[in-house]
Design a protein around this nucleic acid. Structure first.
Length: 766
RNA sequence: UGAGGCGUCGUCCAAUGGCAGGACUGCGGACUUUGGAUCCGCGUAUGAAGGUUCGAAUCCUUCCGCCUCAACCA
């Protein structure tokens, strides 16, 4: 957990940058915005931990906000379970428990404002007509016949919608953006729909309800959220999110939306629909069935919030779609339970073991709860005697070579007690083992005996029966979602019981909600729901890691190795970027001429000419730069390879760096007065802030250093500071030359002549 | 086919032009009154090609692959 404060990810990078640039002046505010229409699962846990963790890391706050904008699907009972789950995970929202429905009034005001400003209109077409007009990915949409209603007309209609004069579906409010927008979400999206339905909080106060894309940004803005974090599938919604805020503000702070990859976990499903289906079809006992990936299910199984936090830290946060190995989850659960579980004895599938030379009465062994950590204290009495029970699997009549358990003639230690030797096996009529007869070594209780195994046991008659539930993965394949029908790959053995299980008597009064390790069997949790006083029900949270079983069992193929990559075959005659430019040229005689002219310039390669002639503006910019003194070849190179990267999404015309200044820059860069690295630093500076290249060069002190003495000084300093690396280099790690060269280059702030520096460094290294 | 996003060990995540690193898994070993735990060791991964640079996972170009988006759901 201490780690989560240290580890960074792309979101902490963003916050750091926002803070550094002064873009956010107040506290960092995040939120977890569930819709109250289902149970939270481990994917939500990742999001909760991320949002609350981010706020905590920066001393800000995180809100719990219910996104209850759809009265027909949402219910109060879910609100309670969600609050409970978030709190259980450690989410502390303080005063900030919010409901989208609390802002319905404010949202409506914003809607009227949009209407008045002509940025929204009431559409009274049918749902089908509106969908039809939206167009497709390839084809633009068509305008609604109601798109140009006047503001006063729209205002009247909107108010009548709100008053309930129209039935469901008769009218919607739409933003007036652009029906030809390449992002289909921007084609006049719906803001409000009519629903004559009772809301779980606002009752019948409203009959129009806001859509997600309208409501969500406003909720964030009203609450002062600074960083609105959601999952990847909302990436295309961001453009609309920004539009809403830009047209309803100004907002301070102005929220920004960022997206991360939601959690996908192997051997389970995460979609609400599929989870709901297994619950409804009674394939599990309910939302809190311990096999479910729900927070409620995991809690009931015995997984702790600490384990979930460890897991979230382990898997990190990024934008890659990925499927996390279920083994990582199991690792975190085991690690957590290992630390918190006292050790007890329980036999799941017992077989009788008789100590033929035990002639006295039973003994009460005093065994510590923490055999490996005596300092933690505590112990209990465990009855021991002639008649015992051990695990059926711990005996083998014909053991494999490295068997370390019971077998005819073999010795084994009974945990916490004596070493016994198997003398005789009694079999039933069907040949099954009924009794294992052993002799014990009275001198072995405290004596070290190397090389033999240890097995667990309970007393034959004084152990207690118990209800034990064994859980396994819900699905048999790593990616059930990839199957035609995920129900087909449900694991029929995901729940099993151990009808004959016997536990040591001290477990009789184990309290519900407590964690235990049954020695060599796994971690068990006393079920908080079905347990009764004196009759605990045991859930196996997780087996112990079992290297023996892994070795002995036929290898689990697991995840197939990634198939070898085949070399790319340019098989499909798809339209390439180059083709697109060629087509554009074909349609524009002006571009053809430009391309021909650029291609004829000595020093400009055909590829460069193609790229420069992509559009008239770029070509004109290039021409101006050359006219100002930039040699054509280098100008093309600097423009295409460096400037484009620096400019990012901004068109060249919008840069603080004018084309003429760029031409003078190239001329300067090629003059030899500075190095490549120096020129790059200079260009970056010029892109950020206008100015004369030569002046800026002097201002930044980027003149090339080709004074041999200065270079030698820098090399000497670096070699002194990097003694260990120098030694490694001299002992043969030649790849370190690049590292040392880089260090020396940094020492001169990139100003040393690379060829000279390399020469001096190599001489110094011998 | 329009728009947006993503490609790094088997898996997840780092490296922000300078030694491709950590964790999980796996495999060895040590230790062990849990075949657990603990400790030690083991790594041919930057989707491909071309370019820029003294130096590229990182910048440019092209290609390849995967994901998301056209609900009066969120």
């Amino acid at each position: 957990m201490a780690d989560s404060a240290k580890t960074s990810n792309f979101l902490t990078d963003i916050v750091d940058a926002d803070l550094a640039a002064g873009r956010v002046r107040g506290p960092i505010v995040t939120r977890f915005p569930p819709e109250p229409n289902g149970f939270l699962h481990i994917g939500h846990a990742k999001s909760i931990l991320l949002n609350f963790g981010l706020a905590a890391r920066y001393g800000g706050r995180a809100h719990l906000r219910f996104d209850d904008t759809n009265p027909t699907t949402e219910e109060t009972e879910y609100v309670e379970s969600i609050e409970n789950d978030v709190r259980w995970l450690g989410g502390d929202w303080g005063e900030h428990l919010h409901f989208a429905s609390d802002y319905f009034g404010k949202m409506y005001e914003c809607a009227e404002r949009l209407v008045v400003e002509g940025k929204a209109y009431v559409d009274t077409q049918s749902q089908e007509a509106i969908r039809e007009q939206r167009g497709s990915f390839e084809r633009p949409g068509a305008a609604s016949p109601h798109r140009d209603r006047t503001p006063s007309e729209n205002l009247d209609l909107l108010r009548r919608m709100r008053k309930g004069e129209f039935p469901d579906g008769a009218a919607v409010l739409r933003a007036r953006i652009d029906m030809a927008h390449p992002n289909v979400l921007m084609r006049d999206p719906l803001l409000y729909r009519i629903r004559h339905a009772s809301h779980h909080r606002t009752g019948d106060a409203w009959c129009i309800y806001p859509m997600y894309d309208w409501a969500h940004p406003l909720e964030d803005a009203v609450e002062g959220v600074t960083h609105s974090i959601c999952t990847l599938e909302f990436e295309s919604n961001r453009e609309l999110y920004d539009w809403v805020l830009d047209n309803t503000g100004p907002w301070d702070p102005r929220p920004r939306q960022y997206e991360f990859a939601r959690l996908a976990l192997g051997y389970t499903v995460m979609s609400k629909r599929k989870l709901l289906q297994v619950v409804n079809e009674k394939r599990v006992s309910g939302w809190d069935d311990p096999r479910m990936p729900t927070i409620a299910g995991m809690r009931r199984r015995g997984v702790t919030p600490d384990a979930l936090r460890d897991f979230a830290d382990l898997i990190g946060v990024a934008k890659n779609n990925s499927v996390v190995d279920i083994g990582k989850f199991e690792f975190c659960v085991r690690g957590d339970l290992e630390r918190r579980s006292p050790r007890a004895l329980g036999v799941l599938d017992p077989v009788r073991l008789t100590l033929v030379n035990w002639t006295g009465p039973d003994e009460e062994l005093d065994l510590p709860w923490w055999p490996a950590e005596p300092d933690r204290g505590g112990s209990r009495k465990v009855p021991f005697g002639r008649d015992l029970l051990v695990e059926r699997d711990d005996f083998s009549a014909e053991p494999p070579p490295d068997w370390k358990r019971l077998a005819p003639g073999r010795e084994v230690r009974l945990a916490g007690a004596w070493v016994v030797r198997c003398d005789e096996v009694v079999r039933g009529p069907g040949g099954e083992v009924e009794e294992i007869r052993c002799t014990f070594d009275p001198a072995s209780r405290d004596a070290t005996r190397r090389g033999i195994g240890t097995i667990h046991w309970v007393h034959g008659s004084r152990s207690i029966p118990a209800e034990v539930r064994l859980y396994d993965r819900l699905f048999t394949v790593e990616q059930p979602d990839a199957e035609g029908n995920f129900l087909d790959v449900m694991n029929p053995a995901s729940l099993s019981s151990a009808p004959g299980a016997r536990l040591e008597p001290a477990l009789h009064d184990a309290a519900p909600g407590t964690h235990w390790q049954f020695l060599r069997e796994g971690y068990f949790f006393v079920d908080p729901v079905d347990s009764r006083p004196g009759a605990p029900v045991w859930n196996r949270t997780m087996t112990l890691k079992d290297t023996w079983a892994a070795r002995a069992a036929p290898a689990d193929p697991g995840r197939p190795a990634r198939p070898a990559r085949e070399p790319a075959v340019p098989s499909t005659p798809r339209r390439s970027q180059g083709d697109v430019r060629a087509e554009q040229r074909a349609a524009d005689p002006g571009l053809v001429a430009i391309h021909a002219r650029l291609a004829a310039i000595p020093g400009v390669s055909p590829d460069q000419a193609d790229l420069l002639a992509a559009d008239a503006a770029t070509a004109a910019w290039f021409d101006s730069a050359v006219a100002a003194g930039g040699p054509p070849g280098p100008t093309a190179r600097w423009l295409l390879n460096e400037l484009l990267g620096l400019a990012g999404d901004h068109p060249l015309d919008s840069l603080p760096l004018a084309a003429g200044a760029f031409g003078r820059f190239v001329s300067l860069a090629e003059s030899g007065r500075t190095t490549g690295a120096g020129a790059k630093a200079l260009l970056q500076s010029l892109v950020e802030r206008p100015g004369d290249p030569a002046d800026r060069l002097a201002e930044l002190g980027l003149e090339k250093v080709d004074d041999r003495a200065a270079v030698e000084g820098a090399v000497a300093r670096v070699l002194g500071a990097q003694a260990a690396e120098v030694a490694r280099y001299r002992s043969g790690e030649k790849k370190l030359l690049g590292f040392l060269l880089g260090a020396a280059m940094r020492e001169t702030q990139g100003k040393a002549d690379p060829a000279l520096l390399r020469k001096v460094l190599q001489e110094a290294l011998g």
